[in-house]
C-alpha cells in the first residue's frame, strides 16, 4: 500500500491557497471539490479557512477567494518550493 507522507500545517495552508487560486479562475468555488482535492475532513477544512481568513489571506464574505496578500503569499510560496525542487531539497 502506498504510504502518504504527513503534511505539516504550512504545507496544508500552501496547498489550500494553491487550490483556491486555481478554483477562483473557474465560475464558482465549490467547497466539496476543494475538500476532495486537499484531502482533509470537511470540519478541518472549515477551520483552515477561518484561520487563513483571520490572517487576511482569503476573503470568505460573499464567495471564497484569495486576497491580494494571499495572492502574493502563494506566488512567493510556489517560487520557494520551485527553488527548493531545483536545489534538490524536497519539502515534505
Amino acid at each position: 500500500m502506498k504510504q502518504i507522507a504527513r503534511r505539516d500545517k504550512l504545507k496544508i495552508y500552501g496547498d489550500l491557497l494553491s487550490i483556491l487560486n486555481e478554483e477562483t479562475s473557474k465560475d464558482k468555488v465549490v467547497l466539496t471539490r476543494v475538500q476532495v482535492r486537499l484531502n482533509v475532513p470537511f470540519d478541518r477544512l472549515k477551520t483552515y479557512i477561518t484561520q487563513l481568513s483571520g490572517l487576511g489571506l482569503i476573503d470568505d464574505e460573499n464567495s471564497l477567494k484569495l486576497t491580494e496578500k494571499g495572492k502574493q503569499y502563494i506566488k512567493e510560496y510556489e517560487n520557494v518550493l520551485d527553488f527548493m525542487k531545483r536545489m534538490g531539497i524536497a519539502y515534505q
Partner: peptide, 15 residues
C-alpha cells in the same frame, strides 16, 4: 535563506 524563511525548519539553515 528563503527555504528557511518560508518553512522555519532548522534543517534548511545549512544552505
Amino acid at each position: 535563506i528563503k527555504p528557511y524563511g518560508l518553512t522555519r525548519e532548522e534543517r534548511y539553515l545549512g544552505l
